[in-house]
Design a protein around this nucleic acid. Structure first.
Lengths: 330, 330
DNA sequence: GCAGACTTGGAAAACGCTTTCCAGGAGGTT
DNA sequence: AACCTCCTGGAAAGCGTTTTCCAAGTCTGC
């Protein structure tokens, strides 16, 4: 293990000089000494010990990213966006996966706090469980008191910088668009009861139908993933249009309908939410509400890194995209 | 920022005792002191400074994971598998994305070395560029000399623990299965020339056709992603079966054929490789060679963590899965 | 030439932990 | 009762950096 001291000795300079040459300081170092140090470092194969550096500087160059499920294209897209801005800033990214367990989110914040990461990014829906949210806030506050920065993609519930997708509005716009196609009987594949993103979308969709004077939709709960969509879709009947509160659930629903011999969109129309990238290659192509996922991830990390007095909330609008999976009723 | 010393003082014990209580040591501490320390830590909201701990211990509890593209389901699945074993071992995961640039892989190894991560996992195909590979090996050797562990998912080229998918054999088996269906004229959507995984699959497929006395396939290069598959597929003609060297390319090919009005499998059969999870919901369901991706990622990290004298190579067989995208010729 | 203002290099004190020694006391054995 | 051993607690020496002071030059402009 070659240390900075080894380099300094080998180059015949002081530790201070070696440090200044190798690890970006504001101080100037004469050309000849600088060259000596660089040569010595190269010859010895010196590699900065980041732990020591972090300790001495009191600041690390890693950020934490907590997602629900990395294999879900929604989170993969968010993560990708965030990681690109991290790369530009020469930051490393530490990733934690909660596997949809809100408790694990708290544990990760605690761990990332211990790591003294520069910023923590919480991606994904908040939970309706007040107690969990309270404990998460507590943990976040502790982290922020010691100088940590936090941003969140999801509901603005934590008092931190937040990129908040307009779930209600997006779902409402989708409902109106579908109603315009002539649909009257709707089912919602609603996701878990405790998930706020799911709730908001259900609420927005339902409220819009109500405003239009249409009958209340059939609400079927299930898990927030592909299989949840599949399961819920097996219980659908007597409607002309199904709204899955996210795209992966819609994909599951498509599969379920296929297995049941129900044609989409001839027998039933299907719409999702998010516009995950993999969507465009489905048959039929899925109607959805587009969210700029990568941009949202990137924006969230930017917010976190850009220190500000007040917590900022950036609302992101969704854009209804009608594709083949929904048809106009004649 | 509350330090261990604050806790020790607050509890009226020495630094050593506080350390032993809070950060898992082999040494016993009497029940009463232990309680005092724990109380003090809780009251003050103490959080270990991992950087200091890492420095003092000379060992960190993070592992590095380098992937080509996190939004590619192939890598998401590998990463997920690896991250699950990391979670079980209480390790944090630092993720780097090369965006398919082999040079960035070297840079990441260097950075992860500086972080003194316990192990680094290189996921994804090696490159045919000898010079880049040499420099990567150099960087890896430097890291390993200072006690780092390395594992790789891909070709066994780095002299480290490797989980090596049987690309040649899998592709050959696929070729034979397709030939058995009566296909004689093949095209291969071959990926980039410099990517060894792509090469191996092309080679295996081609060799098998040759052994069967069938004409050599049409080989079309393109990028290793969805769009590469799409592009390459636009140049396909005069064959009954197309083999895309990975699933995302096959998905692109499906889209291209759809756009060109070519029916799959009626007009042309399509097969991929990997069996990414999103595949099962495509129409038509894609014939492919199944690789246990999550298990491979997990296994690789296990290998890296389990110190051994010799570098081990675990070969992983692929299993041909015939689905609707390939049909038997009459 | 010389006062003053910059530059440049080095010594040494942090940074917050872990762990090796020591020392003292408790318990067990002759 | 004397001697060992074992166990527990604390002092202090690192771990590898950064950075604050100092000191010693090197330039300016008069």
């Amino acid at each position: 293990m070659v240390t900075l001291e080894d380099v300094a000795r080998h180059a015949g300079v002081s530790l201070a000089t070696a440090s200044r040459v190798l690890n970006g300081s504001t101080r100037q170092v004469g050309a000849s000494l600088r060259a000596k140090v660089e040569l010595a470092a190269a010859q010895l194969g010196y590699r900065t010990n980041v732990a020591a550096q972090t300790l001495a500087r009191g600041a690390s160059n890693v950020v934490g990213l907590v997602v629900h499920d990395l294999t879900d294209p929604y989170f993969a897209a968010l993560a990708d966006g965030a990681m690109r801005v991290a790369e530009n800033q020469e930051l490393m990214v530490m990733v934690g996966t909660t596997h949809r367990d809100p408790q694990r989110e708290i544990a990760y914040v605690s761990t990332l706090n211990a790591q003294r990461v520069r910023a923590v990014l919480l991606a994904g829906s908040r939970t309706a469980d007040q107690e969990v949210t309270r404990r998460l806030r507590e943990e976040l506050d502790r982290y922020r008191e010691s100088g940590g920065r936090v941003a969140c993609v999801g509901q603005d519930l934590l008092g931190v910088d937040t990129v908040a997708p307009a779930n209600r509005e997006g779902a409402a716009a989708l409902a109106r668009a579908l109603a315009r196609l002539g649909h009257r009987g709707f089912a919602i594949l609603a996701g878990p009861e405790g998930l706020l993103t799911a709730r908001d979308r259900v609420a927005g969709f339902t409220a819009a139908l109500d405003e239009l004077g249409l009958p209340a939709p059939l609400v079927l709960h299930g898990s927030f993933d592909r299989d949840g969509g599949y399961q819920a879709a097996t219980r659908v009947s007597g409607v002309t249009c199904v709204f899955a509160v996210n795209d992966v659930m819609a994909v599951g629903a498509l599969a379920a309908f296929r297995d049941r011999g129900i044609r989409v969109p001839e027998d039933v129309s299907v719409a999702g939410f998010d516009d995950i990238p993999t969507l465009r290659d489905l048959v039929p192509a899925l109607t959805t509400v587009r969210l700029p996922l990568a941009r949202m991830g990137a924006r969230a990390l930017e917010l976190a890194l850009d220190v500000a007095e007040e917590a900022r909330v950036v609302s992101v609008a969704g854009e209804v995209v009608l594709r083949e999976s929904t048809r106009a009723l004649d």
